[in-house]
């Protein structure tokens, strides 16, 4: 249902980094952002959600498997190009009260992390918006 809402443009989904596990968390976030430079942000996101290799070499190997420019990717990763961005998202998440992962918000308000409940909340809000507009 949420797929439908996203597809139809009613809802938008955003992901925000939280760094709860030190260097491995940071490397995954930085690699994802560097992958984003070459249009592979969500590929890295999905990759890190499904496996636990948070090494530099693993990130470069995955970039190579996606046929990305590994030299550019490695330079981005080693220079920590997106360190400030990631740290900023983490600080904002903490400021928003995201004290556990995952934390989900709908229009900034607390939301359920159980799929069915989240769908219910989104549908309710969508119905309210439709009634208003």
């Amino acid at each position: 249902m949420i797929e439908e809402l996203v597809r139809t443009g009613v809802a938008r989904f955003e992901y925000s980094h939280i760094i709860n596990h030190g260097r491995p968390s940071m490397l995954g976030a930085l690699a994802t952002e560097c992958g984003g430079d070459q249009g592979a942000w969500w590929s890295f996101h999905d990759h890190y959600m499904s496996q636990w290799d948070f090494s530099r070499e693993g990130a470069i190997a995955y970039a190579a498997s996606l046929s990305l420019d590994t030299e550019e990717f490695t330079q981005c990763l080693d220079s920590e190009k997106y360190l400030e961005l990631v740290e900023g998202q983490h600080r904002q998440a903490v400021a928003d009260g995201a004290n556990r992962t995952p934390t989900v918000r709908i229009n900034g308000e607390g939301a359920a992390i159980v799929a069915d409940a989240l769908i219910e909340q989104v549908l309710t809000l969508a119905a309210e918006l439709e009634a208003e507009g």
Binding site: R12, F13, E14, N20, P24, G108
Partner: peptide
Amino acid sequence: PDAPIVITEYSDFL
């Protein structure tokens, strides 16, 4: 980008 409903997930890959 202009969707009225924004679902935000704050998460860590680990």
